[in-house]
């Protein structure tokens, strides 16, 4: 598995998309830091970008990489290697390289601007951690979709749809639900609704850490209380791990029975 990881890693290192992705974040964070030296504001602006771009790129990249490296996978399958090793190695290779690009792209500019001497360090770390987790979640989902669909157009379409659903449509349905059940106490519903979607969960985890949480009033206080308890943190972490674990496990089982 390590060998496959290495191959995928080398392959992606040669790919210019990794560099474009990395330099995109470099440029965005450098220009934001250049425009405003208030690290807290930059974290908020970057949050909006990370929550939008990271899942999208991870989805597209995962699907694209699988379809492009199909011949290589068939070659590997002819060797005496466990199938789960091949696919999980490939998955971790993609997600890992995306995460490294993200960490370099955001981390280096913040290092230059001295994030370690600033009280914003923890907010920044949360941004990085959620970015990495989102990379892992969405590349797992993308690989799973690609594995299940031989038809490339269908695969791409489905992957985009999943991203669109979690990034936009889910919030719409969630909002409708909140308005619909307006007459009932909605605190628990709001907590459950936002914890189930990894993008929403990441956004709230970051917002609660920032000054801006004061704007969230009563509901914000409820959230802060929930995520302040051991149960809340455990729930948030287990949901994020489940979002990685379940697709990864499905990749394993689907690849085992798939007829190439």
């Amino acid at each position: 598995m390590l060998k496959i990881l290495k191959y995928v890693g080398y392959d992606l290192l040669r790919s210019r998309w990794t560099y474009i992705y990395c330099s995109f974040f470099l440029m965005i964070s450098l220009s934001l830091l250049f425009l405003s030296s208030d690290l807290s504001k930059v974290v908020i602006s970057l949050m909006n970008i990370v929550l939008l771009i990271v899942p999208l790129i991870a989805t597209m990249f995962g699907v694209m990489y699988y379809y492009n490296s199909r011949e290589f996978i068939e070659l590997l399958l002819a060797q005496p290697i466990k199938r789960s090793n091949i696919f999980l190695g490939q998955y971790i290779g993609i997600a890992g390289s995306l995460s490294i690009s993200l960490i370099i792209g955001i981390g280096v500019p913040f290092l230059i601007y001295g994030v370690f001497n600033s009280p914003e360090i923890w907010n920044f770390m949360i941004l990085l951690v959620t970015g990495v987790l989102l990379s892992f979640i969405f590349s797992a989902i993308a690989l799973l979709i690609a594995l299940k669909n031989e038809n490339r157009i269908k695969g791409f379409g489905l992957a985009i749809l999943v991203w669109l659903f979690l990034a936009v449509i889910y919030d719409g349905i969630f909002l409708l639900g909140l308005i619909w059940f307006n007459d009932y106490p909605l605190d628990n519903f709001a907590i459950i609704g936002s914890i189930l979607n990894p993008i929403d969960l990441s956004r709230i985890l970051i917002l609660l850490k920032l000054d801006i949480s004061a704007l969230m009033g009563f509901t914000g206080a409820v959230f802060q209380k929930f995520f302040g308890t051991g149960l809340g943190i455990a729930a948030a972490i287990s949901v994020l791990i489940a979002w990685i674990g379940i697709p990864a496990w499905r990749i394993k089982s689907v690849s085992q029975t798939k007829d190439f």
Binding site: V168, D171, L186, S194, D200, I204, I212, G217, T219
Partner: peptide, 19 residues
Amino acid sequence: VLKKTPEAIVLMRSLFIDI
């Protein structure tokens, strides 16, 4: 929306709200 459903503040700064 917030005036009617204050709990919707949890969606603050999400892409859907911007749209």
